[in-house]
């Protein structure tokens, strides 16, 4: 099985780190993984995106023109990536940054109010973990246990006390996606 994912939004939303945690989770689950960021001027403000591929086999290209799943966190990214989702694929978006709703009928579209929820939870930094939780509800490509292992690998030790909070956010994301 291969899952080809694009995560796109604003720099600072945790797009790259969400991708990194997902990639590490895949690694913990014994999968082949690649994480390819758009590392250009995007990283210095503006839009940011990362392609994450998890597979049971050797991964060929880290750069793709179509995706199984797109996680979209702002309008610019929706404009750019909605058309790149494979027919029958999955679009997950947070309506917070969206002014024009997605229009495609041949894909599965899910909304997740992660921005609002993270503010309600008084944990705006766990925004991306809420999104990741939502993804894993819809596409259970890695087990939660491996995501927590991935978090442990990704976060520096001084931040390990934040892991329980991230777990709460992941589970919240699984609840609220619809």
């Amino acid at each position: 099985m291969t899952e080809e994912i694009i995560i796109a939004g604003f720099g600072g939303q945790g797009v790259l780190s969400m991708g990194k945690i997902l990639a590490y989770s895949g690694l913990m689950q014994g999968k082949e993984v690649t994480w390819m960021p758009a590392y250009g001027p995007e990283q210095r403000g503006g839009t940011a995106n990362v392609t994450v591929i998890l597979s049971d086999d050797r991964i060929s290209s880290p750069i793709l023109n179509e995706f199984d799943t797109a996680i979209i966190l702002n309008q610019q990214s929706l404009d750019k990536f909605e058309k790149t989702i494979k027919p029958g694929g999955t679009l997950i978006y947070d309506p917070y940054g969206i002014t024009k709703e997605p229009t495609r009928k041949d894909i599965n579209v899910y909304r997740i109010n992660a921005m609002d929820t993270s503010i309600e939870m008084n944990a705006p930094k766990s925004f991306n973990m809420i999104i990741l939780g939502g993804l894993l509800k819809i596409r259970p490509i890695v087990e939660l246990e491996n995501v927590l292992k991935g978090l442990k690998k990704t976060l520096p030790e001084r931040h390990h006390h934040l892991i329980p909070m991230n777990e709460v956010a992941l589970k919240k994301g699984m609840e609220i996606i619809g």
Binding site: K20, A23, L27, E32, V33, T34, W35, M36, P37, Y39, I59, P62, I63
Partner: peptide, 10 residues
């Protein structure tokens, strides 16, 4: 190149 330098893999 920038792809191989910047991407993460196992």
């Amino acid at each position: 190149d920038g792809v191989i330098g910047q991407m993460m893999e196992k």
